[in-house]
Simulated assay, not measured.
Amino acid sequence: MSRSNLEVVKKVLQEESELSFVLQDSEKKLYKRTEKGIAPMMVLLETGEKPFAGGVIADKVVGKAAAFLAVYGGATALYAGIISTPALEVLRSFGVDCEYDKEVPFIENRTKTGGCPMEKAVWEVTSAEEAYGILKKKVSK
Rank of each mutant, 00 (worst) to 15 (best):
V104Q: 02
D97Q: 06
E46S: 12
G54E: 05
K136R: 15
E46K: 14
L88M: 05
G95S: 14
G55W: 05
P86I: 07
C116R: 01
P117L: 08
A39N: 05
E7G: 07
E27K: 15
L91A: 08
V12L: 04
E89N: 09
I82T: 14
G74D: 01
K102S: 10
F94E: 09
K11P: 00
K112T: 05
V139H: 07
R92H: 13
R33T: 00
T113Y: 12
G73R: 02
R33P: 03
D25E: 08
G95P: 00
P51G: 04
I134E: 05
V8S: 08
S4I: 13
L44A: 14
W123K: 12
D25T: 01
E49F: 15
E46H: 09
K32S: 10
M42D: 00
A87D: 06
K28I: 08
G48H: 04
Y132G: 02
T126F: 13
A87W: 06
V71H: 05
P86L: 00
S4P: 00
G63T: 00
K29L: 05
L88A: 10
V96H: 12
G95Y: 14
G133C: 04
K120S: 12
Q14N: 15
S26K: 07
A58M: 01
A39Y: 07
A121N: 02
T47C: 07
D59R: 04
L6Y: 08
K60L: 10
K141H: 15
S93R: 15
L13P: 00
V61F: 06
L78M: 07
T85F: 04
E35F: 12
G37L: 03
K137G: 02
P86F: 06
E7I: 11
A128N: 00
P51Q: 06
E7F: 12
L30D: 01
E99I: 09
T113G: 01
A70F: 08
A77R: 00
P40N: 09
V8C: 07
Q14M: 12
T76S: 13
V71I: 03
M42I: 12
N5Q: 08
S20D: 02
S140F: 15
K120T: 13
P117V: 11
E89C: 00
G48K: 03
E16T: 12
G54M: 07
S84I: 02
K64M: 02
S140R: 11
K11Y: 09
E129S: 09
G95D: 10
D97P: 00
G37T: 02
V56L: 10
V56N: 01
K32M: 15
F21S: 01
K136S: 08
P40L: 01
G133A: 02
Y72A: 05
K10A: 06
E27S: 14
A75F: 09
D97E: 10
A58I: 02
E16W: 09
Y100I: 04
I83A: 08
G63P: 04
Y132D: 04
Q24I: 14
